[in-house]
């Protein structure tokens, strides 16, 4: 929901609210930035890095589902493209700088996004879901069967640690690399993604995507080249999901075609939905919720699929596009409303 300035509504309140949000954002960022240095807890740092990689991916995904209104079941293609770009550029071209690798990964994912976007631009709803699924699955088969001789099939490829602007951080021990360097790279990438999307999705561009989501006929009859904007939406989404994939590839150090499979797409959808596809921050919360839930379920039972399936089922039936983040927001609003009445 937009809060407009300067008239209509309470200006002071909205401005205070924005200050409050910005302030808590900065505090959260600082706390997260200091966390590994203070606790030196490698397990938690790794978990947080993992969550943040997927938070980026889920936010990128939600541009297509939440804002443009199209369910893609093929986003693993972009995540996997990001991953494979990192490992292949490192292995084949010998480029070892993290920033270059991340940029190349985003560009490659963007190109794949443009292709899949252009091919699927005229389909809707389940046809869009099934078409993106089939297209992504073609990439998966390409990687599994090692067509082109680059991916080593199901064995996968190891990823070595990249350097940073010529600084040989890769020579650090694995633990210090993560705690002292890589975690912070991912944190900054997530913060940058949030800030970028905060502005982009509130801009006329973001409004245009919402127009397409709400009523494509009307958008077209308002002079919007709908098909072109749907492709833009896919490209932007693919680039950000690719960034998430590229960051994740370095974190886990070994990649296999599984990250291109449709179940991976399903997991990204799941995260966004869990947090709330109708909200801005939902996908971030969803990624955290999904991964922590998975860790929690795994520590009690080997049957964590069941737990995850049940949660997905219940979320779809109860919270829908609100997810847990939207649900929590509604709850807070209800409580404050009641207080206001008394």
């Amino acid at each position: 929901m937009s809060t407009r300035l300067p008239t209509f509504g309470n200006v002071e309140l909205t401005e205070t609210l924005q200050d409050w949000r910005l302030l808590s954002g900065i505090v959260l960022f600082v706390v997260l930035a200091l966390y590994p240095g203070i606790t030196l807890n490698a397990y938690h740092t790794r978990l947080l890095t993992w969550i943040m990689c997927f938070a980026i991916a889920a936010m990128g995904f939600n541009i297509v589902l939440g804002y443009t209104g199209l369910l893609s079941f093929g986003h693993a293609a972009f995540f996997g493209t990001g991953m494979y770009t990192v490992v292949l550029v490192m292995g084949q071209a010998g480029i070892n700088d993290l920033v270059v690798l991340l940029l190349l990964a985003m560009i490659m994912s963007g190109i794949v996004g443009a292709i899949i976007g252009a091919l699927s631009v005229k389909t809707h709803e389940i046809y869009f879901a099934l078409l993106t699924l089939a297209l992504a699955q073609l990439l998966y088969i390409l990687a599994v069967r090692d067509i082109g001789g680059l991916t080593r099939g199901t064995d996968g490829i190891g990823v070595s640690r990249p350097d940073f602007f010529g600084i040989p951080v890769s020579e650090l021990s694995a633990q210090i690399y993560l705690l002292g360097f890589y975690y912070h790279v991912v944190l900054v990438a997530l913060a940058a993604t949030i800030v970028l999307l905060w502005f982009v999705l509130r801009s006329p561009f973001g409004l245009t995507l919402k127009m397409i989501r709400e009523n494509e006929t009307r958008a077209e009859m308002t002079g919007v080249p709908v098909l072109r904007y749907r492709v833009y939406s896919m490209i932007l989404s693919a680039m950000i999901v690719g960034l998430g994939g590229a960051l994740y590839a370095v974190l886990i150090g070994h990649i296999t075609p599984e990250y291109l499979d449709w179940t991976m797409s399903g997991e990204i959808v799941f995260m966004a939905l869990l947090g709330g596809i109708g909200t801005f921050f939902g996908p971030v919360i969803g990624a955290g919720g999904f991964i922590m839930l998975q860790e929690l379920a795994l520590s009690y039972t080997e049957y964590w699929h069941f737990t995850m399936g049940l949660v997905l089922f219940v979320v779809v039936l109860t919270l829908r596009e609100n997810g847990i983040w939207g649900g929590a927001k509604t709850l807070v609003e209800m409580i404050t409303d009641r207080r206001g009445e008394q």
Partner: peptide
């Protein structure tokens, strides 16, 4: 024809 403006929030 400002649909492609990326960084200016619409409310501003």
């Amino acid at each position: 024809q400002e649909n492609n403006r990326l960084f200016m929030p619409t409310n501003r």
